[in-house]
């Protein structure tokens, strides 16, 4: 079985074996550089899962979440940065409460995430890469009140290890992270989460004169989250998932636009819960 998959992967891969880059993790790498990005995420579905199997959903349960992130970065020098990510979340769901389908919604500012990427750059002729270690903290800036809170009210700790490398035509990024979620308000505790992100890209067009270009990538997102405890009322749900899909990036000078679509290739819920569904994300960033 593995051999057949490997042959299939090889066959699919060959036509795109010329690939590349620029991405926010690569900029700003200059001293005293800074940047901002607006990033919109949209996911949700009415598909009910029991483990990895889709089961009937007679009460039409559903969940949809739209999040707009304001993100910022400041680079002290290329080896040390500080970043922030502040979400504004708009969430709706139909949940079964006392055997009745109940509609719930909420919107507002979510939890602020602050990170300190520490990077080691490796410039080698026609390639550049960096190894990055990023400790992060998630502050409970979102409201934990109501029957569908925006936050569990906890202080959470994250650690990420990533590696990226690019040449004029290819880009690759690998990131492994872990979030340790502590107990917050009202006894809520979202499960700890392990994640792996992979981006493989091709840079088909670049114009030196106008400093502009296009590149395309393939994104693979893997998550494994422990089940939240029964007191948790947020959108968190435990389980494993693999989302994957194409990414399009356009850039000119110091402005970058990115759009991505992710398809749920594999999902396995720890309990009966809703699928995350398809994702559509779009963003624009600028560096100075």
């Amino acid at each position: 079985m593995y051999y057949r998959l490997l042959v299939l992967a090889t066959t699919l891969y060959l036509p795109i074996s010329q690939a590349h880059q620029p991405v926010m993790d690569m900029a700003p790498r200059w001293d005293d550089g800074f940047g901002f990005q607006l990033w919109y995420e949209n996911y949700g579905s009415s598909e009910l899962l029991n483990g990895s199997q889709t089961v009937s959903n007679p009460k039409n349960l559903e969940r949809y979440v739209q999040t707009t992130w304001l993100q910022g970065v400041y680079t002290f020098d290329r080896s040390v940065r500080v970043t922030f990510k502040l979400p504004y979340r708009d969430q709706q769901r139909v949940k079964e409460i006392s055997n009745t389908a109940t509609q719930q919604s909420n919107s507002g500012v979510g939890d602020l995430v602050i990170g300190v990427p520490i990077k080691k750059y490796l410039n080698q002729g026609n390639s550049t890469g960096n190894l990055s270690l990023t400790p992060s903290i998630r502050l409970p800036s979102g409201s934990s009140s109501g029957n569908y809170p925006l936050s569990d009210g906890s202080w959470d700790l994250g650690l990420s290890l990533s590696y990226s490398k690019s040449t004029p035509k290819f880009y690759q990024l690998y990131d492994v992270f872990y979030w340790y979620n502590t107990e917050g308000d009202r006894g809520m505790q979202e499960g700890n989460e392990l994640g792996i992100d992979i981006n493989l890209g091709y840079h088909p067009y670049h114009d030196n004169l106008t400093n502009s270009g296009v590149f395309v990538m393939w994104d693979i997102t893997m998550r494994d989250q422990e089940s939240p405890n029964t007191a948790t009322l947020t959108h968190a749900s435990g389980g494993e998932r693999v989302h994957t899909g194409p990414v399009l990036v356009l850039y000119k000078d110091n402005i970058m636009f990115r759009a991505e679509y992710k398809y749920p290739l594999y999902e396995k819920s720890n309990n009966v819960s809703l699928s995350r569904g398809q994702e559509f994300n779009i963003g624009i960033g600028v560096t100075f």
């Binding site: 590349h20 880059q21 620029p22 690569m26 900029a27 700003p28 790498r29 200059w30 001293d31 550089g33 750059y121 490796l122 410039n123 080698q124 002729g125 026609n126 390639s127 550049t128 690019s166 040449t167 004029p168 670049h206 030196n208 400093n211 502009s212 270009g213 850039y251 000078d253 110091n254 970058m256 560096t287």
Partner: peptide, 13 residues
């Protein structure tokens, strides 16, 4: 310039 393979990244130079 060693490693200068991305114009978005070399904007700082």
């Amino acid at each position: 310039v060693s490693g200068a393979v991305c114009s978005y990244c070399t904007f700082g130079i």
